[in-house]
């Protein structure tokens, strides 16, 4: 840090202005740090617990881990990784989550474009119904959909669970993207049409490249929801080892009387890994995309 010395009064003034601003902002920063700390505390406790030996997790709180003698171990992690079927279910989770993210995102782009740019009979009514579907609780649909799936022999197949996840994700996806496409400048579409571009061409060459922030945040939402989903997988896919995703296999770590829950601490971090990677790699789009469709101008 360079101190203002000698006659350069202007620099001194600027220096003190920065200082004043820093002092004024200190309370704000302090509040942010405190909130972040409180927010992260449970995760921190979970993380510390996951590194403690089993009997200590059961006997005492995680904060006692910082007392000497230190007793840390990776046993919980190795148990989870080595437990039967964890590798297979990681693959299963990917096999479910990737198509169940791609399908609704792609379908939603085309649908949202239609709702935004095409004029057809009953457009607003259909859109209203789709928005209305946002508030239908998923539990209401389980039995009727499962009956249909049984007839079509889709129960227990990946195709069935892709369809289910796509359908549950679509109302929100269409709603988000339609509002985003609405904001795109009309001139852009008009000039494309004048150049003779088809709708398909407009979507592929114009809409998709300009909606990357919205698409990325949508993909993150959908991926996280599918990755963390237990209910849909359990109902439509079942818990048999060859199709069970990680959420189902992790829930098998605990016995019916609740013993073995200490492994969940490690399992939580293992299953968090991939969503974290997805989130951080798409983060810069996410920040821009989170306000997608919120301001209509």
């Amino acid at each position: 840090m360079k101190r203002a010395s000698g006659g350069d009064a202007r620099r001194t003034r600027r220096g003190s202005r920065i200082l004043v601003r820093a002092v004024l902002k200190t309370p704000l920063h302090a509040v942010i740090v405190v909130i972040c700390f409180l927010w992260l505390l449970p995760s921190l406790g979970l993380f510390v617990s996951s590194l403690r030996p089993r009997h200590l997790i059961q006997q005492s709180g995680w904060w006692t881990a910082f007392e000497t003698p230190f007793q840390f171990t990776l046993d919980n992690y190795s148990h989870v990784i080595e437990s039967s079927n964890m590798g297979r279910s990681f693959i299963n989770s990917l096999l479910i989550a990737v198509p169940a993210t791609v399908f609704p995102t792609v379908i939603a782009v085309f649908t949202a474009y239609a709702f935004s740019r095409l004029k057809f009979f009953g457009r607003d009514a259909v859109f209203l119904v789709i928005v209305g579907l946002l508030v239908v609780p998923i539990q209401m649909t389980l039995i009727p959909v499962l009956r249909v799936f049984n007839q079509l022999r889709l129960t227990g197949t990946f195709l069935g669970v892709w369809l289910a996840h796509a359908a549950y994700g679509l109302p929100f996806a269409i709603y988000l993207l339609r509002n985003f496409i609405d904001e795109l400048p009309v001139e852009m579409f008009e000039s494309a049409q004048m150049d003779g571009a088809s709708h398909f061409r407009i979507i592929v060459s114009l809409v998709i490249p300009t909606s990357v922030p919205a698409l990325a945040s949508l993909a993150i939402f959908q991926f996280m929801w599918v990755w963390n989903d237990l209910l849909v997988a359990l109902i439509y896919l079942g818990g048999t080892p060859d199709v069970a995703p990680m959420t189902v296999t992790i829930s098998h770590l605990v016995s019916s009387q609740g013993s073995g829950w200490e492994y969940l601490t490690a399992a939580a971090f293992i299953s968090m890994l991939l969503p974290m990677i997805v989130f951080f790699s798409l983060q810069k789009y996410f920040i821009r995309g989170i306000v997608a469709g919120s301001v209509k101008g």
Binding site: L142, L146, R147, N150, L234, I235, G239, V248, S251, S256
Partner: peptide
Amino acid sequence: ATRDINAVLTTRVES
């Protein structure tokens, strides 16, 4: 396996 046997089984039987 599911720890929520009540809900899962009822759904499966009903459907």
